[in-house]
Design a protein around this nucleic acid. Sequence first.
DNA 1: CCTGCAGATTACAACGTTGGAAAGAATGTA
DNA 2: TACATTCTTTCCAACGTTGTAATCTGCAGG
Lengths: 336, 336
Amino acid sequence: MAITMRDVAQAADVSIKTVSNVINDHPNIKAETRERVLLAIEKLGYQPNLSARGLRSGRTDVISLIIPDLKNAYFAELADAVMTAASKRGKVVIIEQSGGSRARELEILHGPRMRMVDGVLYSVLGLSQEDVGLIDIPTPMVLLGERIFNGPTDHVTMQNIEASQAATEHLLQRGRTKLLAFGAHRNEVIGSAGLRLEGYRRALKKAGLDYRDELAIDAQSWHRSDGAQAMRQVLESGLDFDGVVAFNDSIALGAMRVMQDAGLKIPEDVAIIGFDDIDETRYSLPTLSTIDPGRGEIAETAVAMLLERIDGAAEATPAREFEAGFKVISRESTAI
Amino acid sequence: MAITMRDVAQAADVSIKTVSNVINDHPNIKAETRERVLLAIEKLGYQPNLSARGLRSGRTDVISLIIPDLKNAYFAELADAVMTAASKRGKVVIIEQSGGSRARELEILHGPRMRMVDGVLYSVLGLSQEDVGLIDIPTPMVLLGERIFNGPTDHVTMQNIEASQAATEHLLQRGRTKLLAFGAHRNEVIGSAGLRLEGYRRALKKAGLDYRDELAIDAQSWHRSDGAQAMRQVLESGLDFDGVVAFNDSIALGAMRVMQDAGLKIPEDVAIIGFDDIDETRYSLPTLSTIDPGRGEIAETAVAMLLERIDGAAEATPAREFEAGFKVISRESTAI
DNA sequence: CCTGCAGATTACAACGTTGGAAAGAATGTA
DNA sequence: TACATTCTTTCCAACGTTGTAATCTGCAGG
């Protein structure tokens, strides 16, 4: 049916192996022979069978990206960055959505699909630190995110504490002192919420302010609706505040919307800063100050590390931790 | 190294083929044997080698989704819908981003990666009707979008004209008569822009209003920034209007932002409706009325059609055209 | 003219799985 | 008991490619 190496070999009057050698750029091929083979490939429109290659060589040039949810702008942008980085290096990406569910993440990690890819980028959400033993799978892996540290694999993340501290200081510098830590998970120590809360506390402390627990506002999952919901409760409770450090952009946008509905002016009455620098923050009303988490750098580094593991180039290297640089992006929502 | 069927066969004391038969649910296997094999699989943690299976059977259970850009909310949501539909049927999805470039789309369509997937869902942007000959590839394919009609393959799309007409009527019913057709491409006949403009015209005509060319506002690519940019020009020009039919949500949101900056009240001064029902429209200020294009139905149908083609179930059936149903979603931006 | 050697090409096996057909076991019928 | 029939299992080959090792070619040096 389809054209195989056999057909090319026949057309170019060489052996199948020579065709393979030409395709794989092996040394010691006469220029004239190479020419002839390439011509035949061109003429017949030959395309290699990647399943066969995968079977024989153990490589598929496919990597898997496990993320909670593509509808979430942060992950959509991360996926884009990863695919771009992978594409540069000749790899394609299979995206697997976990929904952030523990069971689903384990299912994916231990499913047969893992055997079809050369490696995995795993953005952890469902598992947590005590599950560190469960992520030791035979497929090369690079971990993303803040849920598991010091695992058996390379790990790429952002400077959560430092960035959150910087975001908080950004508001403090503008004279705001009654700052909500918006999107906290109080029982969490690591994890994005835990680390960002820690950064918030450090900034307060450095400024000589007391941490007040009632200013830490819970919002379990970080969707826009959660931010809206949480802010509605805050306003009802009559809590007094003049600034919001939101732990991601989506809840910041949700909260902003609710505050505006309630007649609060941003940034005059309340200044607000988010986290992630999703595209939308540049177009909201007002535009949202935020933290650029270095998504491009994260994706590039993660893909590069993964490929080193796959190639065995980093064989001897122990598990690495990498933190991308961040930037405070100042926009209208804190332009006081 | 890894566990193969051979190991399982040995452990269960049966032949390799019996293991294969059990895995593939072949008829005529003694319950006791099946039990024994499954136990061995469990015990050894066997995972099938998908490359080998792909080579032998010609199936990989992977489908490819070609879209312009994952950062675009519409496509992120479409990708999510497609992956969910595919996952239900045991398939995974490789996403390929084309950037909407003609060259890149052709490269993907004719690249070797096409041979690794069972089928393709191709959301056309770079190619157009006169390229219809170029999309006749050996891999089963279902076309998405409005750029190419009556191609050699199945095609799933939305009711652009009808939906745009309904959106326009939605504003007309609310007493607005000076409506911008926002995001038009005047030279286009088919394509989303062309069809949506046609729907706009039909609604005007039906209401006994004249089509005025100066109200058709160009915005080439439909990103938020294009909407903002185009609206800035409209406002500068002093054009008089009281309603906007935006041809997608992103440009609607961009335009809304610019109008608000200029002191216009929405919906009091200008009512606006978008297209696509992306998540963000539920949280913008004001929330944006829009058209739900039936994304879920589109994804489900497209995947189902593709699988029928792959299975050969629709072998005899000629190329099909399917239009998903739409809904007008009325929100604050048109709540007059 | 033979030998040695590097460069170029090829033969062969193997990767792990499944399709097809043959062989073997179990059951029913005369 | 013998034989036909059905169910169950196995044997063999093949999918298209690449790694290993072997072969072959041409040429320099003695």
